[in-house]
Write a protein that binds this DNA or RNA. Structure first.
Length: 497
RNA sequence: GCGCCAUUAGCUCAAUCGGUAGAGCAACUGCCUCUUAAGCAGAAGGUUGUGGGUUCGAUUCCCUCAUGGCGUACCA
């Protein structure tokens, strides 16, 4: 005790003063025989319930619990607002009604404390539904002051690092994550009703396959082996299709050891769906009906608002060939391009930057990103991607240079990626080996997934697969500009002292 | 990785030409039994992100570092 007093004397800062004031009140509560951290409190209503019932509850006894968000003390009577997960309601405490001992206890409470209240509902002179408190029970003492009641918490860094504070004081933040939960729930409901089986496949993989991205590496001690956090679940889900799970999906985290931006978090949530005996065109239909379902369940109309644009989600969505739209937006014919150098020349003529180790396809992507992607506001399926850079996709029968693949763009963002899955084990091995050469160039390492090829050798039915970035989907539906606004605890650097 | 910007009280924000930091909310002490951004009176709260430099004097100018934001690059 003495020691800590000395410490606080040495490192005395204003916030420490505020905390010790509250600790002092906590001590005084204990001295009055009040446990500052009791077990629980039975409420008759949640707050939204009370607000919803309104007049119906007038004069009736209720009890509710929540966090004190504001206090207006007027000597021997006070008004406070308490907030629970569902809303905020006013309460009125009068000394003569709660008793002077209870009122003393109340005076030891602070904004931020949790409290259980019982009393009869009434309307104040100004017409606000209010609990006329007859008894109160402190439920948990808060030792740190909350941000300002009017301006809330604005500092972005604190909002992300201390999301709990953000959630307490910024109601719209809670709304975003409610909607996120609703979207994920809707996806599950939609797929479950269509008899898809939800599964969980390994997060730790000995080969990081299914996409090209730098993985996170970890190590298993007793097996003495390196493992990768998955960059995609794709190869495992298709193993399940081999195993006879013909309709399967997974909603789970992927991990990519790459740059962080408003559109990239190292761990992000991915939906992958596979449906046997269908091709990629059926995934377009699935995409459309999934969006219809989500908008119907959550929005009521097929429209979302981005910063200034209204995005019309009404289906069906156009299907546009990659080369057609490139030609439309740049005036150049990309189907004529022959090789990496030719593509580089084209990029130069369009003033698009690229780096020396970018391949032909990568350069084309840069051109697409600059000239086409920002113009794709309403949903559009871009089709006819080059087969060479879609190693897990089945090529078109009439043109093996083109993959049976589409990407869905909305509001200038890639939302989904899908293809007819390549199920020819010989071709698949050849493509993986081909890809390894590229990887060697990039010094990224990687091996052919022999077990995956073995699975294909047992036979995988014709099959289509779809991947949707759930975080970006939520960004779209919530009008969020940054992925950090739809991830509760986004990745941050270590906090400095 | 690079560029630009930001960092001041627990929170939200001020501070003129470089002259030694102010307010509101919260907290504290009084008063106040229908308030709601309650009110009134009083008092308190700061190593101006970090470390250096220039200067008689730095929140202010210069450099380093840290963290964050935006842009850009990377990312099938």
């Amino acid at each position: 005790m003495q020691e800590s007093r000395e410490n606080s004397k040495n490192s005395k800062s204003p916030i420490d003063d505020l905390i010790s004031q509250r600790r002092q009140k906590m001590k005084e509560l204990r001295e009055k025989g009040v446990d500052p951290y009791p077990n629980g409190f039975d409420a008759t209503h949640c707050i939204s319930d009370i607000l919803k019932k309104g007049r119906e509850l007038e004069g009736k006894a209720v009890s509710a619990h929540g966090r004190i968000m504001s206090m207006r003390k007027m000597g021997k009577a006070s008004f406070i607002h308490i907030q629970d997960m569902t809303g905020r309601v006013q309460a009125y405490l009068k000394r003569d009604d709660v008793g002077s001992e209870n009122y003393m206890i109340f005076k030891l409470l602070d904004i931020g404390d949790f409290v259980g209240l019982s009393g009869k509902m009434f309307y104040t002179k100004t017409g606000e539904l209010t609990i006329h408190v007859e008894s109160l029970l402190p439920l948990a003492k808060s030792l740190r002051p909350l941000p300002e009641k009017w301006h809330g918490l604005k500092d972005v860094e604190t909002r992300y690092r201390q999301r709990y504070v953000d959630l307490i004081v910024n109601e719209d933040v809670k709304e975003v994550f409610r909607l996120r939960s609703g979207i994920v729930q809707a996806i599950r409901k939609f797929l479950d009703e269509k008899d898809y089986l939800e599964v969980e496949t390994p997060m730790m993989q000995s080969i990081a396959g299914g996409a090209t991205a730098k993985p996170f590496i970890t190590h298993h001690e007793s097996l003495d082996m390196d493992l990768y956090l998955r960059i995609a679940p794709e190869l495992y889900l298709k193993r399940l299709v081999v195993g006879g799970i013909e309709k399967v999906y997974e909603i789970n985290r992927n991990f990519r050891n790459e740059g962080i931006s408003t559109k990239h978090n190292p761990e992000f949530t991915m939906l992958e769906v596979y449906n046997a005996y269908t091709d990629y065109t059926s995934m377009m239909e699935l995409c459309e009906s999934l969006f219809n379902f989500i908008t119907k369940e959550l929005l009521g109309k097929p429209e979302v608002q981005s910063r200034e644009k209204t995005i019309n989600l009404k289906t069906p969505w156009p299907r546009v060939s990659l080369y057609d739209i490139l030609k439309e937006k740049t005036g150049k014919d990309f189907s004529e391009v022959d090789g990496r150098d030719d593509m580089a020349k084209l990029a130069d003529s369009l003033g698009v930057k690229y780096s020396e180790d970018n391949g032909e396809h990568k350069i084309m992507e840069h051109i697409f990103d600059k000239f086409v992607q920002p113009t794709l506001v309403d949903p559009v399926f871009i089709v006819d991607y080059p087969a060479k850079h879609s190693p897990l996709a089945k090529p078109k029968k009439d043109n093996p240079k083109i993959a049976q693949r589409f990407e869905l763009f909305i509001n200038g963002q890639e939302i989904a990626n899908a293809y007819s899955e390549l199920n020819d084990p010989i071709q698949q091995r050849a493509k993986m080996e081909e890809q390894m050469k590229d990887r060697e160039l990039k010094k990224e390492g990687g091996v052919v997934d022999d077990d995956y090829i073995r699975a294909l050798e047992y036979g995988m039915p014709p099959c289509s697969g779809l991947g949707i970035g759930v975080d970006r989907l939520v960004m779209l539906f919530t009008g969020s500009a940054s992925i950090r606004d739809v991830i509760l605890f986004p990745q941050m650097k270590k906090e400095s002292d």
